Computed example of a mutant assay.
Amino acid sequence: MSESELEEFREDAGVMTEKAVDALRRGYVYVGMPAIYIRKAIGAPTEVNESRTGGGVRYQYVYRASAGEVSYVYVEDQRVTSIQENGYGLTATSN
């Protein structure tokens, strides 16, 4: 994400942590990240699956790489709760 895009998004999103700013600059997600940042950080998922449980709704964002790897980002209560990294480059350690 370019600095001008980041600044524009920052104005719309309000207060952002330094970790969130770094994730958007470098293009990764992390556990605890607000869900509204996911698409800005790593793009649109290939598909989104929704599960309804007694505790609410859980989303599974599916990212398919051209080489066939599939990675998942799980979201509950508008926050990333877990990441299953399978070569797509979703997390800071893989970037």
Rank of each mutant, 00 (worst) to 15 (best):
S2Q: 15
S4E: 13
F9R: 09
R10D: 00
R10G: 02
E11C: 10
A13T: 02
A13I: 01
M16C: 01
T17I: 03
T17C: 04
V21G: 06
D22Y: 11
D22T: 06
A23P: 00
L24I: 13
R25G: 06
R25I: 11
R26D: 13
R26V: 13
G27I: 05
Y28F: 15
Y28I: 03
Y30S: 10
V31Y: 05
G32P: 00
P34R: 10
P34F: 03
I36L: 12
I38V: 15
K40M: 10
I42R: 14
I42F: 07
I42N: 02
G43W: 02
G43N: 04
P45S: 05
E47K: 14
N49S: 08
E50K: 12
S51H: 11
S51I: 14
R52K: 15
G54Y: 04
G54K: 07
G55W: 02
G56I: 09
V57T: 01
V57L: 06
R58G: 12
Y59A: 05
Q60T: 11
Q60A: 14
Y61Q: 07
Y61K: 07
V62G: 03
V62W: 11
Y63D: 10
A65H: 11
A65D: 04
S66R: 15
V70W: 00
V70A: 09
Y72D: 03
Y74I: 01
D77E: 09
Q78V: 11
Q78I: 14
R79M: 07
S82P: 01
Q84S: 14
Q84M: 11
N86G: 12
G89T: 03
T91V: 04
T93A: 15
T93M: 12
T93Y: 11
N95Y: 06
N95P: 00
